[in-house]
Write a protein that binds this DNA or RNA. Sequence first.
DNA 1: CGCCTGGTTAAGACTGTGTAAACAGCCGCC
DNA 2: GGCGGCTGTTTACACAGTCTTAACCAGGCG
Lengths: 229, 229
Amino acid sequence: MSDMEKMLLLVSADHTATGLLGKLLEMNGYRTCVVTTVASALSEIRARPPVLILLDRQLLVKEGGRRDQFPAAIPIIVLQPFDKSCGQDECLTELEAGFDLVFCSPHSRELLAHIRAILRRQQMPAAAPSVLRAQGLAMDTARHEVTVGGTLVELTPKEFRILHQFLLSPGVVLSRQELLNRVWGEDYALEEHALDVHIHSLRQKIEADPSKPRFVVTIRGIGYKLQAS
Amino acid sequence: MSDMEKMLLLVSADHTATGLLGKLLEMNGYRTCVVTTVASALSEIRARPPVLILLDRQLLVKEGGRRDQFPAAIPIIVLQPFDKSCGQDECLTELEAGFDLVFCSPHSRELLAHIRAILRRQQMPAAAPSVLRAQGLAMDTARHEVTVGGTLVELTPKEFRILHQFLLSPGVVLSRQELLNRVWGEDYALEEHALDVHIHSLRQKIEADPSKPRFVVTIRGIGYKLQAS
DNA sequence: CGCCTGGTTAAGACTGTGTAAACAGCCGCC
DNA sequence: GGCGGCTGTTTACACAGTCTTAACCAGGCG
């Protein structure tokens, strides 16, 4: 995340453009490196991989560069000089060829916003905790782990799915039929009482006092709900 | 990636637009889900997280939606009806607010290309370092070597690729199908049990006590995960 | 007091996973 | 080209954990 690592590679033969752009980027906290040919870009990438590449479309066309010459892991924005005509089809071709964006606007602030947006997305996967919480309960669906007040509890598949349904709509009463449909699937005719048994074993595992449930409470004549204070 | 997982969420109150767009997207191999308010979008996201959200700008403005209401991990494209004027500044505001793209063009093919580009970037292994570590495990992808607690172990290609997938997302449960897709390739119909056998031989090589695995643990009914402390 | 709903328990059936062993393909080597 | 070893796949079977069924129990409510 440090600015030191935010190295951008500018690939263009247009010295006026790269000069301006480079200054702009460095004022916004990026480090830049300028090369003037696709070939030198490739060796620079090997030496010091940038986090993003800005690639002049003219150069790309002239040298016949293809997306798969560059590492797929590094996003690439193709720059189309705004004073040149930018045919829809041509820009589309590059986008479909695997480049991340074809930029053909004179607004440098817009380019900056796009760079930030792409880098933001790039660096995102680090934090993607898919965890549902209610009271002292926490369910991490990605890791398939459930904790009650911080301590891990082991649930069977059915118990997990039942609790999952409760956590998706905490405080809402789910009828027996609704739960059966969601956990066992539609149109599965099943001894309705089976649900009770699973609720029971679920309570044994997550409730402090299973005879006086605080999480999964019974709504007599209707079904169950997850108590949401 | 199986089609099941490529779920897009369409958030718009414009039924004609969503109808057309939905049809277009489904013709291109995506599954779509349409909701008409930001509030219903949020609950839908909790229930079945989509891989990408298409959000009508009119709705966003009207309901005063903010980017941080939505999970940061899910990319969002803001749709600006092309017949409305799209002021540069307004579009910029959203881009800088954390949205991934503001799309204001009538060309549906262009939208498709952008969706693909963003998902491509999203699913990219994000410039994985050449040495992956977890617990006492270390995998040098460049040298194609794996060490457990410092000692080198010899893995077959399949075992290596399976372990590689685990190390790319330690702690996350990978379903059998997901692993089959990633290691064997998309939609390759294969006796699912083959995976178990490879997991078995992998455990024989990396686990101290293969009958009580500490690294690759089974999540019954789902798949496997790499235990991350 | 008796009916009905839900709780509890235990036993059998079943499914998913582990394990071993046989089979098939590939590649290098003699 | 034939042979042998290595990898990957398939098959078969055992076993453990999980689910379902059923029977019985407890308590609320008419």
